[in-house]
Design a protein around this nucleic acid. Structure first.
Lengths: 331, 331
DNA sequence: CCGCACAAGTGAAACGTTTCGCTCTTTCAT
DNA sequence: ATGAAAGAGCGAAACGTTTCACTTGTGCGG
């Protein structure tokens, strides 16, 4: 079907080794270079990456696992990762864990069986057991957005706790006292941001009612449910801090359904600057994550590790920016 | 490093061919089956997919190219495609064309060079030239969402023209006459939906002012720009039909910025039911595409073709549903 | 003019599977 | 009893590269 290095050998009379050397950037005599290049053009030759992979034990492919391809946060990250990898000649094999630890473990094995050279993952599990197959197969791993409780892996994330702290503090500065939080539990980012919220409240000396603390799944559904409950309290909060995009979506939906007005009826503070904030009638106030930097950094690190750098695993913590929209009323 | 079939040969005393046969589901004597299975467990053996790929000339990987991973429409489609492929043991290599024909052609070649077994693509180009490398390499292709002008490929899409027709007709039934359209040009879906709009207007005998026809790029930016222009006309439309999700996002943003109220100041009709419609204060009226069916069908077809079915290429046209929200005022 | 260093080229082995064509054994209908 | 058919196993070749260890050739300093 397609031409092989052997066909080039026939046409040029050179040895396989010489041609291979040329293909891999080695030096050959000018006259031979010309012959080879002519033959390549003639025969429409292209390296068979599989055969190459068999001997080099490299596929030039990186596996990426996120919790949902249709989550805008994931999609945005994937875009930047993909661009960086493509620019460097690497392909990107994608899996979704669907927020399910079991599926996450299964898909990780799948990626390893596909012989990817490295893996980038937004982990759903909180400990590192599921990464064992990668470790055993010597496949480097980089975490994004979340780190694990039990072991240090290379990781690119933001300063969740202090970002949340500063944002909630802004609410307090606007004289809010009855501040509720809707957060995801078990999950790393949710927990950290929740801590940041608590930090701010404690520091300000504001006691937090139990019914103001809502912790559930990372989903629109939970966002709706929690916001609905909050709004029906006999003493509802004047402001709500939502710790991720999906929860924010759900919460905003339910407010619209209830006919609540922002920020007149309730002030809103969210995470992630993903279009939504610009679409809503009042711009939602959000903590902005450096998505591009995050994605590119993760891709950069995984490539570095693939190329054999054996620096110690390190956590890279990127800064965030707070963007006050008009969803917060000064009391 | 990891065990090979040869190690199993040593441990069991069987021939490579026998073991290979077992691995591929062939029959072996019960006693040998037991020996092999024990050895596999012992040695923690796993097939090396690359070596297998070299001889079978299959990678069990499908390439998917969309115009933007961070577009919710694409992300949703990718999710369903990915799920179907994963369930069938196939991996998914993703590329983004970024709405750029040149990049699209380049990435297609990249996917072919990665030896994917098949390619699913939402094409950006309008003719099939860029698919030539796939054709030459005998890699089957399935188009999604859009077909090409010059050649028939397998394709899964919706009845764009009549869906648009019916939706615009609804506007007309609500006594709107000054109906504008914001559409993407050059692009297949945009053009078809634009035609559907024109069909409805013509059939109703409503002349369409030139300044009501806005055709530009498939982007939020263009949506904003066009809506802004429409609203500043001396005789602005009472309703606007937007032919895709990105344009709708941009248009809604600008309306919010201008403080225009929906549907009091202007009625809105969009395409694609992607969260946005539920988030906006008034539910936006939209044409709903069967995303799941579309993605799964495309994946199903590509697998069928990979397995060697040589049915003629066919276009599968799925139906849509119109969901009237409260973004349309009855005049 | 010798010998050495270095550049370029080479044949063969290796990577880990699948597959082809063959043999051997068993079964079963005649 | 016999021969054909079917089931199981086997050795070796093939897939298309890279890489290793080696040879050849060239130029240059002493």
């Amino acid at each position: 079907m397609s031409a092989t290095i052997r066909d080039i050998k026939e046409q040029t009379g050179l040895a396989l080794a010489t041609i291979s050397k040329y293909l891999n950037g080695g030096n050959v005599l000018p006259e031979n270079r010309i012959k080879i290049e002519a033959a390549i053009k003639d025969l429409n030759y292209e390296v068979n990456e599989i055969a190459r992979g068999l001997v080099t034990n490299k596929t030039r492919t990186v596996g990426v696992m996120v919790y949902g391809i249709d989550s805008l946060f994931n999609g945005t990250l994937l875009k930047y990762i993909s661009e960086y990898l493509r620019k460097n000649g690497y392909g990107m094999l994608i899996c979704a864990s669907d927020n399910d630890e079991e599926l996450e473990a299964k898909n990780l094995k799948f990626l390893v069986s596909k012989k990817v050279d490295g893996i980038i993952v937004i982990p759903v599990s909180t400990n590192s057991d599921f990464l064992l197959p990668a470790k055993n197969a010597n496949v480097p791993v980089v975490l994004v957005d979340r780190s694990l409780a039990d072991e240090t892996y290379d990781c690119v994330k933001i300063d969740n706790r202090s970002s949340a702290y500063r944002a909630v503090n802004y609410l307090i500065e606007q004289n809010h006292k009855k501040i509720a939080v809707i957060s995801s539990e078990v999950e790393y980012t949710g927990e950290e941001r929740f801590k940041g919220y608590m930090d701010a409240m404690e520091k300000a000396g504001i006691p937090v009612k139990e019914e103001y603390k809502c912790c559930g799944t990372h989903s629109m559904e939970y966002g709706s449910e929690a916001m609905n409950r909050l709004m029906r309290l006999s003493d509802p909060p004047t402001a709500v801090f939502m710790t991720n995009y999906e929860i924010t979506l759900g919460a905003v939906m339910v407010l619209n359904d209830m006919g609540k007005r922002i920020p007149d009826d309730v002030s809103l503070l969210g995470f992630d600057d993903l279009i939504l904030s610009h679409l809503m009638k009042p711009d939602i106030s959000v903590v902005i994550q450096p998505m591009k930097e995050m994605g590119e950094k993760a891709a950069e690190i995984i490539l570095k590790k693939i190329k054999g750098s054996d620096e110690m695993p390190a956590e890279i913590v990127l800064g965030t920016r707070f963007s006050p929209g008009d969803s917060i009323r000064k009391l």
